[in-house]
Amino acid sequence: METVVFIVSALIVLAGGLGVVSSRNPVHAALSLIATLFGIAVLFLNLGAQLLAVVQVIVYTGAIVVLILFVMMLLGVDREEDLETEPLVGQRLLAGLIGLLFLGAVLAVIVIGREAIVTGTQSVTGAISPTISNISQIGTALFTTYVFALEITAGLLTIAVVGAVVLSRRPNDLAPIPEPESMINMGDEPLTAIPEEGAH
């Protein structure tokens, strides 16, 4: 049962990931990203990490991708893109090579390690203690062991919010930045047309 769920959701994750990079339309790419994030949420469920799964859905699918889509719609950057041109020359070849290298490394570990790769230790995302629920374990850890990191993160987020507010306000009593000298006296062509005599 677990294996079947794993295979199906892993396929969804992979297909979504490929969709993100190969869609011509940014909105389709965002939709593929949603599929990937959902697949990951199912993988978490499969590992018994219910809280992580639901947080994954609420935070990533429900907030971050919604904002990405929102900005795309608001700014109207949902044009089809040309996938033929490569912004960086040789980028795709390099990406493919690195991907193959990574796949080779994983396969090599499996081949060389044989039985030794199954360590038998518990997965990082699984429950530490089977008797206490995941949620209370995470809560206890967050507010005791990692309370400093938690508070610092909260502070960082507050700073980010305040920074965004400060950056987005536009004081309009500031004088416009003058054009640099070099742009004004470039040659005999004036930047603004001089009204001809008797034109009025």
Binding site: V27, L31, I34, Q50, L51, A53, V54, V55, V57, I58, T61, G62, A63, V66, L69, F70, M73, D78, S133, N134, I135
Partner: peptide, 25 residues
């Protein structure tokens, strides 16, 4: 009756935005 209970409801209501958003777009 999952352990995450009411969080599931929040997750579902946050997904409900997609239908509206994509329909309009």
């Amino acid at each position: 009756d999952p352990a995450i209970g009411i969080l599931f409801a929040l997750a579902m209501s946050s997904i409900a935005v997609y239908g509206v958003m994509l329909a309009g777009w």
